[in-house]
């Protein structure tokens, strides 16, 4: 099973790296270029402006732990299942000896690793750029890096967000006939995930709302992070379980 998951992950990465160039000869590397563009834009401009102040800011946790994995994965996960169906490779994959779980976990594992790697590479690039920034002239010489707590937060959030995005992507693209349809469904799925907590809180009685706001105000940054990570973990695991239940090859051939 582990060997099969690894086999699927290797194939997925090779496809990511080859990009979506269709039949042309110059397509290899387009996937990497797309990711590098996202990482570059998010990792060069504002670290240049912030300098070493970046390392004491909570912004890298949000950008590298949440924004970058989300941006990198949003197109990849839709393509992972719906794209295989659209390119008529899914049936052949399903006709192989691979188990349903090996295919599902292989695809999810590849996406999670890709999203997490994107966030970490972004954090490293930002660290290098922040150290090279002109803004550091007033601070003096020497190199700076993220505190351990921020690094752990980036890794944990990156992992959870990647798991969440991949699970949602898998769920919405399982029955989508095309990548475009899957991406559309995915956008609605993410919007629902982002706005659902706010809508739920609005529906609660005033006293309960006040209690939640009070508890959040009283909590320190570490507690807030743990609450947020805990909620992400629960939602991601629930979605993963649903995806596992729905990913059955006898339901995946659309006729």
């Amino acid at each position: 099973m582990i060997a099969d998951i690894w086999t699927v992950m290797r194939k997925e990465w090779r496809e990511y790296l080859a990009g979506s160039g269709g039949g042309g000869t110059g397509g290899r590397g387009r996937g990497v270029i797309g990711v590098l563009l996202i990482v570059g834009i998010a990792s060069i401009l504002w670290p240049l402006q912030m300098g070493r102040a970046l390392f004491t800011s909570p912004a890298p946790v949000v950008v590298d732990g949440m924004f970058l994995p989300l941006m990198i994965l949003i197109s990849i996960v839709a393509d992972s299942f719906a794209g295989e169906r659209e390119r008529h490779t899914l049936e052949t994959l399903l006709a192989s000896r691979l188990s349903d779980r090996a295919i599902l976990f292989g695809k999810l594992g590849a996406a999670i690793a890709y999203g997490l790697a994107g966030g970490l590479i972004g954090a490293l690039v930002q660290a290098v750029v922040a150290n090279l920034s002109q803004k550091n002239a007033s601070v003096g010489a020497g190199l700076a890096f993220y505190p351990v707590g921020s690094l752990v937060a980036i890794v944990v959030l990156g992992l959870l967000v990647s798991l969440l995005v991949s699970s949602v992507g898998c769920l919405v693209s399982l029955r989508a006939a095309t990548t475009r349809q899957a991406q559309l469904n995915l956008t609605f799925g993410y919007l629902a995930l982002i706005f659902a907590p706010f809508i739920i809180v609005q529906l609660l009685p005033k006293q309960a709302q006040a209690a939640i706001v009070g508890a959040l105000n009283a909590a320190g940054p570490t507690q807030l992070f743990l609450i947020f990570a805990g909620v992400l973990l629960v939602v991601a695991v629930v979605l993963l379980l649903i995806a596992m239940a729905r990913f059955q090859r006898t339901r995946l051939i659309l006729s």
Partner: peptide, 20 residues
Amino acid sequence: SAIRQRTGALLEFSGLYERL
């Protein structure tokens, strides 16, 4: 699963990964 282990299939489409 036991069937797929012992068989090979060329289905309606070639099923090749064209980017690879």
